[in-house]
Structures are given as structure tokens and as C-alpha cells.
Design a binder for these strands. Sequence first.
DNA 1: CTACGATATGGGGTGCCCCTCCGTTTGTCC
DNA 2: GGACAAACGGAGGGGCACCCCATATCGTAG
Lengths: 185, 185
Amino acid sequence: MAKQQLRPQRTDWRRNHERLLGVASVLVARDGAQVSLEKIAREAGVGSATLHRHFPSRRALLEEVFQGIVERLRQRAGELAGGDPRTGLVTWLEELTVCAANTRGLAAWLAAEAGDGPPDGETCHVVMREAAAVLVERALSVAAVRPGLSPEDLLTLAEAVSLVTEDDPAAARRLLHLALDGVRP
Amino acid sequence: MAKQQLRPQRTDWRRNHERLLGVASVLVARDGAQVSLEKIAREAGVGSATLHRHFPSRRALLEEVFQGIVERLRQRAGELAGGDPRTGLVTWLEELTVCAANTRGLAAWLAAEAGDGPPDGETCHVVMREAAAVLVERALSVAAVRPGLSPEDLLTLAEAVSLVTEDDPAAARRLLHLALDGVRP
DNA sequence: CTACGATATGGGGTGCCCCTCCGTTTGTCC
DNA sequence: GGACAAACGGAGGGGCACCCCATATCGTAG
């Protein structure tokens, strides 16, 4: 999206790009999304200028770091769309929260991504919205959930739960079900 | 808590303390909880060393900044404990989320405060836990909510909603009620 | 195989930030 | 009004994000 493919990127460019992404994945998972960019560059064995050339903002870096995970969740939504609408939706939300609990920084990323930056159409944020929308529509169509339920709101809620229970999958599941079931007797 | 009252603090100490807190409130509300501490000191007309002497960590500063707001929420919980248990609980949670939506940084503070730092007993985090516990116990005692409902989990959920809807009171209310009602038809 | 131009790199500089040291000022008490 | 503790603030060390430009590397045309 940033580079036109007129000329394919040079091999050292590709090599450094992969190296940076790999290191970034590890360090973000270990230290959170606020890791020093210079530390990533140092660990990858490249100058900080190179990192900034490959990823003009922290945002761009995280976008690529989380892309793989988000892609898997999108595919999973596709699979679950074939089964029971209600359990499919719940299962997917569960997997989302567990996944976020195991991937430090992902929850904050999905929840906060809206707002700033260039609105290119395939951000992690957008991908998740679309995946959630499909499952919610299906559940709505067979009245498995309350009519009027907003996919956007439901996903935001699940992301909120993930955000606040980072690193604690058990709490994540508990809070998600609390939110899905409500507090009525 | 930090200073023994053997000798009352000097007047310039008190003056600077208040000035710093006032400026911090304004800047945190305007720029979020990540404001530069140096900017706060500069705006207050004191050296950065003075700020660090008054507040050894950002944590300590935010704790005092939010103390007033949290105190009001505590009192409000006390008032609401006199009325209908179910609406009291819901009303209080609503007021919490709206308050957080209007006070940038508060939600993150309440949600994230657990874990690190010295466990002195009167942090904002603890105050909120106690206030919520009273209201939930009352609601449980008249079966106004599902048995087994955990005050801790419910409050964490409300804080999660606040966290993810910062600056958008309408969305905050919507998500809170979604979570309280669940998704069933 | 070589030479050349486009592409990519990284050291070093700037500006901001957190935090601490230490010489100086200010308030308080007699 | 003087002495002493309390409080202050400038300056500096260490770190980070981001940018500039001289240098090195890749890919290819001859």
C-alpha cells in the first residue's frame, strides 16, 4: 500500500522488514505496545532510521504486527458462520478475548485504533468489525439474540473486556459471559 | 500519609502542592493522563524537582488528582444505598461511566491501578471497590440481581466500558446497559 | 564482469522528557 | 533579627522519537 510494485523491493529491504516485524512481535508480546522503537531497531540489528523508514509511525508497525492474528480471527469467523448462529457468535467472542489475553497490546490496539490516522480500508480495526458484523447478523436473523443488537457495540464491549483483563484469560471469559448474560436474576 | 504531622508543612509547600494539583487536574483533563510532568511543573511555575518532591511518581500525582472525584462517587454510593437496591446499583454504575467519560484518564486509572505500587489501603481503586461492594450486596440481598454476581467483576466491567468509551457519554450508557441486560432476546 | 544509478542504510544531531544532585533561598521559631 | 531546617530550582545524565545526509549496497545494462 505504501510502496508501488513498479520495482519489487530490494532483498535487503525485505530482509530488514521481516527482521523488524519478528523482533517487534516478540518485544510487544513481552513488554507491551509501548516498547521503545529504538530497542526494537537495536535488537533487529538495524539503525533507528531504518525502522522509521519501514514504519513511519508506531501505529503502522503495530498494524503489521497484529495483522496475522487478526487475519486468523477473520477466518475463524468465516468457519463459525457455518454452524449454530448463537454458539458461533459466543464462541468467536470468547476466542477473541482469549486471543487478546495472550497477546499483550492487541486489545488496546483493536479498541483504540479508531479515530486517528489515515482511513485506509483494511486496518485490523475494520477487519474485526466486518467479521463481527457477519456473525451478529446471522444471530439476529434467527432471533438468537435480542433484536436491535448492534454488532459495533457488541464488539466494542468484547474489546473492552479484553482490554481490562489483559494477561488473565480466566477473568476475560468470566467478564465476557457476565456481559453477555446480564445481571438479571 | 507521606509526611508526618510532627511539624506542619511550610506554607510555600502547601501553596505549591495546591498549585500543582490544580494545574495537573486541568492538563490531565485536557491532554490525558500522559501529560508531560515537566509541562505541569512549568505551568505551575515551579521547577521539575519540586514536582517530583511533592509526587514521587506519576501514579502518586494521579491518585491525588482523582481523589476528589472518587470521593464524590463514594458518597453518592452511600446515598443510593438508601433507595431501591436494583435501580440504585444501576444508577451508580451509570454515574460512574458518565463521570469517567467526562474526566479523561480516570477510567484508565481506576481500571489499571491494581497490581503495582505500594498497597496502601485508601487508593482510588480500593475506595471504588468498597463502594461497589455495598451496592451489590444490597441488590443481592433482595435478589434484584443474579445470585453469585461478583462486585469486583461488575465494577471491572463498568470500568472497562468507561475505558473504551472515553469522551463519549452516550456510547458509555449504551454499552453499560448492553452489558447489564445481556444479549438474549 | 564491471560500472553505474537507484535504493537503502546508519551514525549522529535535535528536541523533549523523566529523574536526581546540590548549592541557594525561604519560612519558622526563639 | 539570627540560626537552622525545610523547600526550592537550575543543571545535567540518560533515554527516546524522529530526521538529515554522507556512505554502502543491490540490480542491471552494457
